[in-house]
Design a protein around this nucleic acid. Structure first.
Length: 591
RNA sequence: CGGGGUGUGGCGCAGUUGGUAGCGCGCCGCGUUUGGGACGCGGAGGUCGACGGUUCAAGUCCGUCCACCCCGACCA
């Protein structure tokens, strides 16, 4: 490709609304352009990288017997109503009506489309196992898109779906994906770790997320260096240290003026925070036969711990949670700041599983300015649900081995879910098994966003001059710069560059040829910015000695190589660069 | 949805007590220059986010709305 014909312009300055490195550089280098919040155009450079990423995904999917297809972006509401997600998913789902007033959905994922197909197509166990995938646009109307391509509303995703006759089959396909995903990220040179995650709106009973660790990530993970346990904070388990057992003491009401917070309370009463009970009120949207209902939930954790809303949501089977307003709390008879489960009725009480083992806690008295001392679970109050609902924090003990865990930030670049039979049962996607019985297809679903992957790689590989794309996904393999003008013989330089351009193309090398009438500084800076791994410079200086200059983007050394050896040397270096990435695929132990 | 911020040419920005819009980069033409974002001269390009109000006069003051960014809530 001749740069004089390339649709994209490098920018000397980044747009002021780009903050993180990958966003700024992808825009400055002319890869992407924003159209609206969370909606981007992939310019020719980005499109080439994305195509390469997608081809890597294709290759790895095909290796585990995936069949590529293409499912529609626009769905009739009926298929989403059939699984119940039409009502279950909120404003994040794009909906519109067609000209006849039919409700339509912009696909945010494709489980519905899959089960709609397989309920007709899959009739016998003889057709299973099967794995299908496609690379398709999704729309998720995220409340807050951010960080360039990391978190967008419209995006392209490779999503695959495994279909099996039983759970053992699913386990196998899940494990296949677990490895294939590591291969995909390794081939894109992105370091990732797999962590256990919440199943979220996908349903199902096991899920892993592939996380690229970076401070700009928006997910928090807990990781145990000792035993390797790793999980999203949303579900991370922890060992809770019990306070020493005490004999239950008599319930006592004490005046605690202005002690509305745990810190204030502990200070006022001169007791440690772990001797208090923290009350958190949430409004839970719970779905029953008649539709959604909001219900006040009173959650109690020990005073020195934090509530984990995802755990609470799962514990009460809610669709969504939001903090309760003071008026909603007051309506239940509780007093904000002095709230207590003692003596409350008609409210769902959820306590952390550590509370029943904690004796003589201080809790509110549901009376302005007063707390109860020596509150004990079972004797003074009971809960509707006892479950683990506290958030794991940096330094908390690992649930598996007890060592302190670290909290780190990461970007979720892929995920895999064991869906089970939830979707297939919902629509009657069954097959006849060898025993003659009708059984629902056992499913898994697996996704990687290609744009987020590109942005993560850009975030990982850059320096103050620009991007440094790994060869496997760089838009081009070689950036050829011709330096004409000046005292040298421009015609000779240009002819040499032109010939080299043609020769390299002949060899199948992907070349971006900077044939523009620009000064050397401009060309070098643009080359650094765009970040193609190998740069060749044809100028009169080296040409007088019968050579051209070669430089690898991530190395500082420049070398002059003889003109008649250029093609040979370049193809060799390119091969080495590929080998450096692709020969490093590790077999990962499934955890 | 809560908190904070920003909207002026493609990008980055300035614009005074209200007086009819400017700078740098980029773009076009001519010339000089040519191995790390050169220089001179001459140009093109703006309904100042939108609507309404105040005023003789609004980029500037007032009101309403919209868009975009950041933090949080939320999220595969």
């Amino acid at each position: 490709m001749r740069m004089s014909r390339l649709l994209s312009q490098t920018l000397r300055e980044a747009p002021s609304d780009a903050e993180i490195a990958s966003h700024q550089l992808l825009i400055r280098a002319g890869y992407i352009k924003q159209l609206a919040a969370g909606i981007f155009t992939a310019m020719p450079l980005a499109k080439r990288s994305l195509t390469k990423i997608e081809n890597i995904m294709r290759d790895e999917m095909n290796k585990i017997d995936g069949q590529e297809m293409s499912m529609p972006v626009v769905h009739p509401a009926e298929i989403w109503q059939a699984t119940g997600r039409w009502g279950k998913v909120g404003p994040e789902m794009g909906r519109f009506q067609d000209r006849n007033g039919r409700e339509m959905v912009l696909a945010m994922t494709h489980e519905e489309a899959v089960v709609d197909i397989i309920k007709d197509e899959i009739q016998s166990y003889r057709q299973l196992p099967m794995m299908i995938y496609h690379i398709q646009t999704k729309w998720r109307d995220d409340p807050r898109p951010r960080a360039g391509l990391i978190r967008v509303r419209e995006f392209t995703m490779k999503d695959s779906y495994s279909l099996d006759r039983d759970w053992a089959g699913l386990d196998l396909q899940y494990a296949n994906h677990y490895q294939a995903y590591f291969n995909i990220f390794a081939r894109c040179k992105l370091p990732v770790i797999a962590v256990e995650s919440d199943v979220g709106m996908m349903g199902g009973n096991m899920a892993h997320e592939y996380m690229y660790l970076t401070p700009v990530g928006e997910d928090t993970l807990l990781i145990c260096d000792e035993c390797g346990y790793s999980a999203n904070r949303q579900i991370a388990e922890l060992q809770k240290e019990k306070a020493g057992e005490e004999k239950q003491k008599k319930l006592k009401k004490v005046a605690t003026p202005d002690a509305k917070t745990i810190v204030g309370l502990a200070e006022y009463l001169k007791i440690p925070e772990h001797k208090t009970a923290k009350a958190v009120f949430m409004m839970a949207a719970i779905q029953d036969q008649e539709g959604d209902k909001e219900k006040l939930v009173f959650a109690i954790v020990r005073g020195d711990m934090d509530l984990n809303e995802t755990k609470l949501l799962n514990a009460v089977g809610a669709k969504a949670l939001r903090p309760a307003e003071e008026s909603e709390i007051a309506a239940s008879g509780a007093v904000p700041g002095y709230a207590s489960p003692v003596g409350l009725k008609n409210i769902m009480v959820v306590v952390d599983d550590l509370i029943p083992e904690s004796t003589n806690l201080v809790a509110g008295a549901n009376e302005e300015g007063f707390h109860f001392m020596n509150v004990n679970y079972g004797r003074d109050f009971v809960a509707d649900v006892v479950a683990d609902i506290v958030a794991a924090r940096d330094g908390d003990a690992c649930s598996k081995c007890g060592s302190p865990m670290k909290a780190l930030r990461g970007v979720e670049v892929g995920n895999i879910f064991k869906l089970g039979t939830w979707y297939s049962e919902a629509v009657g996607a069954t097959f006849q098994d060898s025993d003659g019985k009708e059984k629902p297809v056992v499913m898994g679903s697996y996704g990687i966003g290609s744009g987020r992957l590109l942005a993560s790689v850009a975030e990982e590989y850059n320096d103050k001059y620009g991007l440094m794309m790994p060869i496997t996904i760089a838009p081009y393999e070689v950036h050829l710069v011709e330096l004409v003008g000046g005292k040298g013989d421009s015609e000779k330089v240009h002819l040499a560059a032109e010939k080299l351009y043609q020769d390299l193309i002949q060899e199948g090398v992907e070349v971006l040829f900077d044939d523009r009438d620009e000064s050397p500084g401009v060309k070098f800076n643009d080359a650094d910015l765009i970040g193609i791994p190998l740069r060749l410079t044809v100028g009169h200086r080296a040409l007088q000695e019968g050579g051209i200059e070669i430089k690898i983007r991530h190395e500082s050394e420049k070398k002059v190589i003889p003109l008649d050896k250029v093609v040979e040397i370049v193809t060799e270096i390119i091969q080495d660069l590929y080998a450096g990435v692709e020969d490093n695929l590790d077999t990962v132990e499934f955890k």
